[in-house]
Amino acid sequence: MKVEIHETPDAIGAHLADRIVAGIRAANAGDRAYVLGCPGGRSPLPVYRALESRLAKEPVDCSQLIVVMMDEYLSADDAGGFAPPSASAHYSCRGFGEREIVGRINRGLPDEFRIPHQNFWMPDIAAPEDYDARIVAAGGIDLFLLASGAGDGHIAFNPPGSSRESGTRIVALAEQTRRDNLATFPEFTDISEVPSHGVTIGIGSIAEQSKAVAMIVWGEGKRHAFYRLTAAGAYDASWPATIAVECRNAELLADAAAAGQWGAR
């Protein structure tokens, strides 16, 4: 896996925004969709902010851009099943995607260049396995932005111990994943408020359906994640984010704070 060290999170964001815009332009020239895999949370925010700034200054037709979200929280419902939160909930992955990804990209674009509603994809909790087939039918994911949990290496909501071959499914969230998300969503005041389940794209889905991946780690709190990712030679189920090393055209982009002494080599 190629490793790039950037001075700041904003530098990572600018680098990846340029790459994504170039990919959208190339896809448009070939009259095809550009499929972008997107996590929620803090790690990719510099990318989404940079895309907003870049496209506001130089609009590009994003009407064929497909945003593929990774996961969503679920809570038990009265019928004994699960239900996602309202998009207005502070922790909703759908709400995050609508505001921080589609909303930012569309904000500075003319109407005819904007991402249409139907090009914002979320896994369906009624048939999560259908998500993988839908992605395959779209030609796969051109670039999947990835992030690693700081405490347990979860990727999307895949907990430690997840099978290398796992597909999109409903999972119980690991306790450490839920604790990590107390920092991601500071409006949670206690772990009891963090949902216990989620629907998530699978480990195998990420590896098999991505043409390229960019793992983003920044901040001193991600230094151990950086170490685990750079030390991995293959998928290690004890740190699920290591699936990145088995993906096609994989890159790890870190800032100086996350890379620590590695970046001084």
Rank of each mutant, 00 (worst) to 15 (best):
E4L: 02
H6W: 08
E7S: 09
T8L: 01
T8V: 04
L16Q: 04
R25A: 07
G30L: 07
Y34E: 07
G40S: 15
G41A: 10
P44A: 02
P44G: 03
P44T: 10
A50I: 09
L51A: 03
A56P: 12
C62I: 12
Y73V: 14
L74N: 04
P84H: 03
G97R: 13
V102N: 02
I105E: 04
P110M: 10
E112K: 01
W121T: 02
M122T: 14
I125M: 08
A127P: 15
D132R: 11
R134H: 14
V136K: 13
A138K: 15
F144L: 12
L146C: 03
A150K: 14
A150S: 15
G151K: 12
D152K: 01
G153F: 09
G153Y: 07
H154M: 05
F157W: 05
P160A: 00
E165G: 01
G167D: 11
V171P: 02
V171H: 00
A172Q: 14
L173H: 06
R178L: 03
R179M: 05
E187L: 03
F188H: 01
I191C: 00
V194H: 01
P195E: 08
S196F: 13
H197Y: 15
G198R: 15
V199T: 05
V199I: 15
A207T: 11
A207C: 11
E208C: 00
Q209A: 01
I216M: 00
K222F: 10
H224P: 07
F226V: 15
W239S: 02
W239C: 01
A241H: 04
A241F: 04
A241G: 03
A244Q: 14
L252F: 06
A254L: 06
A254N: 09
D255K: 03
D255Q: 06
G260H: 06
A264S: 13
